[in-house]
Amino acid sequence: MTVEPGTDQAPTPVGRRGFLKAAGAVAASTAVATAIAARELTRPAPATHLVARRHGGELPGDPDDRAWSRGRPWAVPLMVQNMVPPHAPELAVTELQVRALHNGERIAFLVEWEDDDEDAVDAMARFRDAVAVQLPVDVAVIPGITMGALNQPVHIMQWRAAWQRDVDLGRQGVQEAFPNRFKDAPPEELMGEEAATQFYPAVVAKNPMARRDRTSPVEDLSAVGFGSLTAQDEQTATGRGVFERGWHVILSTPLAAGEHKTSLRPGVTTSVAFAVWDGGAGNRGSRKQWSNWTELELEG
């Protein structure tokens, strides 16, 4: 993210990296520093939580859209998930910057983090970058941080870099992961696409991992505790991720997203939590960075 001098950047929740950046920007210009100091007297109280600003019309689908500058960035510190094994050995991502907008119909989160490498290939011993937003199904309840609990279901939206590539470039498979591979008799050529499906057990089993017609890089899931993550029958989440010195990812869901999903409305205050995976660090599944619940307010 970039810090724009003069905006109502919240100082307190910004992590060390963000703080240093902000400090650097301030030091760069005494004039700006003075301006910020002057504003300090009149600016609204520092943000204490994530606010989804109301946005007129369509929500921006591009992380570069200027409309995002209206959303206040909220820094979310991350920890290594170490409640249930296996854990990641070390913290690969320390902090997220999150903005949110809603238009009365949908809510969109822009989640950004620094990452030196774009890991977008799903293959043997290679893992992809990913991010997830977790919302309570019952917005009045703060479910267990343990991906919900039996009577506290959560609605999770996960974006994966590999799915983004599927959407952008068409379904990525073994040919893209291993461009020099040679196959003399692929079943598709011998018997056609439909009959060849029998050679893909996960496709026949309708596993969402094996989907060959992915249109959204974000998947709607539900969970009632660790290990229970299950894809929702009805997929309504959308989004888009762009890599530029780190990831800039939009995840969007209808406010009233349907059964087993979140049910938000303008003016409501609830909770939201995040998780991030750095594929290059071997992150996948429970080897991840996660945040605690943070307050989310939808502007009325």
Binding site: A123, M124, A125, A202, V203, N207
Partner: peptide
């Protein structure tokens, strides 16, 4: 156990 590079699940 082996990972299927096409279907992205293990077999």
């Amino acid at each position: 156990v082996m990972y299927n590079n096409e279907t992205r699940v293990s077999e």
